[in-house]
Design a protein around this nucleic acid. Structure first.
Length: 185
DNA sequence: TTCTCGATATTCT
DNA sequence: GAATATCGAGAAA
């Protein structure tokens, strides 16, 4: 089942949790990469000090203030892209960072994007790695995941296959006590 | 296994 | 000019 707008127009924390287990599918020409999402983080509201949105609208973060279901991709540490999905209640602010996944289909294409000789469990265990494995770069910023023609990337709902837990978020220095990271036990 | 550290560019102060 | 929603290599253990 494809995820629709009502899925993303909910509380950012709820969406982050519900995305665990869902399949992220990428089509390149006639080849398919299918990844099960295993780790997410919520960046909710303009008052979350760890969020890009905490200092108001800027050229980079403006999508977080806009429609839910849009991809928000940003460049970080001079070399990596991170892939988010805008998700929040109407007229609110927030996005979910996709931090990790496991391969369901398309291992060959993933290795081609990530480099040969990488152990399976290291292919998708980080936001920069996930984006690179799927061939996601800054050109994807603003892509509408809800559009009718799901030609190149889309999301399908799946039940989680294991219990989910929450922990503090990774790589931040502010609001480190908020347990807004979700992943499998 | 856990750690430290350098690379690198965009964004914001 | 400083910080950053990271990664991988290499050392220590």
């Amino acid at each position: 089942m494809l995820l629709d707008k009502s899925f993303f127009e909910r509380d950012t924390l709820t969406v982050a949790q519900q995305l665990i287990g869902c399949h992220l599918v990428r089509r390149i020409d006639d080849q398919i990469i299918r990844v099960a999402i295993t780790e997410t983080e919520a960046y909710k509201g303009s008052e979350d000090p760890a969020s890009h949105a905490s200092r108001g609208v800027t050229e980079r973060n403006r999508l977080m203030f806009g429609d839910a279901g849009i991809m928000y991709v940003y460049f970080i540490y001079g070399m990596h892209c991170c892939m988010n999905i805008v998700a929040h209640r109407p007229n609110e602010v927030g996005a979910v960072l996709l931090r990790g996944g496991e391969v369901v289909e398309g291992i060959g294409l993933i290795r081609a994007n990530r480099g040969e000789g990488i152990a399976d469990h290291l292919l998708l265990n980080g936001p920069g790695k996930l984006a690179k494995a799927l061939g996601i770069n800054l050109e994807w910023n603003g892509y509408d995941l809800l559009q009718e023609t799901h030609n190149s990337i889309w999301l399908e709902y799946k039940e989680p296959i294991r219990p989910i837990r929450s922990t503090p978020r990774i790589g931040i220095s502010k609001a480190v006590d908020l347990p807004w990271r979700y992943l499998y036990e």
